[in-house]
Nucleic acid binder design. Structure first.
Length: 188
DNA sequence: GCAGTGATCATA
DNA sequence: ATGATCACTGCC
């Protein structure tokens, strides 16, 4: 029942992956320390036509990972102090990714990267256990009514793309009924 | 409401 | 080389 999300999970449209990541577990392992939580908020950044997507102006050194195969972490630094965590989706050469905006008790994309000790060293790594950061399906089904969609946050510059409902939130999330963020149980 | 903080990218 | 911008947060 519990299993690590396979790379094929990410080799789908960013919007589909963003929706399906709600309720999945994000697990971080650094040495003997294990931290995990349930994904509660995501945003899709979908391709070269999406004005909010970093790849809108083409491939650069920063966004190069988005052009790679699905299932790699895209981690970048912004505002001089914050790390953002994304997972690359879709085909190689099609730049798309899903931003992980909320996990368990950590409400906010920069708060969760800080809590999970995520920084640029993970950029370009694949989301498998060996990398120290991966995701698992723990058998929780998310009903459609528990999913809310809204426009993305902080992308006002993207004009009509700023209004598209590419942000996904898990409603009614209660940390106690899912998984403890301080769990020290071994990974499945 | 807005300062902080520094990498990144376009412009030159 | 320079300056604007930024997928945010915390404090006013």
């Amino acid at each position: 029942m519990i299993h690590v999300l396979p790379l094929s999970f990410f080799d789908r449209p960013a919007l589909t992956v963003a929706r399906d990541l709600l309720g999945k577990a994000l697990i971080r392992q650094v040495g003997k320390k294990m931290i995990c939580g349930v994904i509660t908020e995501t945003e899709a950044y979908d391709g070269p036509q999406d004005k909010a997507c970093h790849a809108y102006r083409g491939k650069t050194n920063r966004n190069a990972v988005m052009f790679g195969p699905a299932g790699q972490w895209y981690v970048y630094f912004v505002y001089g102090m914050h790390w953002m965590l994304n997972i690359v989706t879709g085909s190689k050469d099609y730049p798309a990714a899903v931003l992980i905006r909320g996990v368990g008790e950590w409400d906010g994309p920069a708060k969760l990267t800080k809590a999970l000790m995520i920084d640029g060293r993970l950029n370009g790594k694949t989301a498998v256990k060996k990398s120290g950061l991966w995701m698992e399906d723990r058998g929780v089904q998310i009903p459609a009514k528990a999913v809310r969609q809204t426009p993305r946050i902080g992308v006002a510059y993207a004009e009509e793309w700023a209004r598209k409902p590419y942000r996904f939130l898990l409603e009614g999330y209660n940390a106690d009924q899912w998984v403890s963020s301080r769990s020290s149980s071994s990974p499945a």
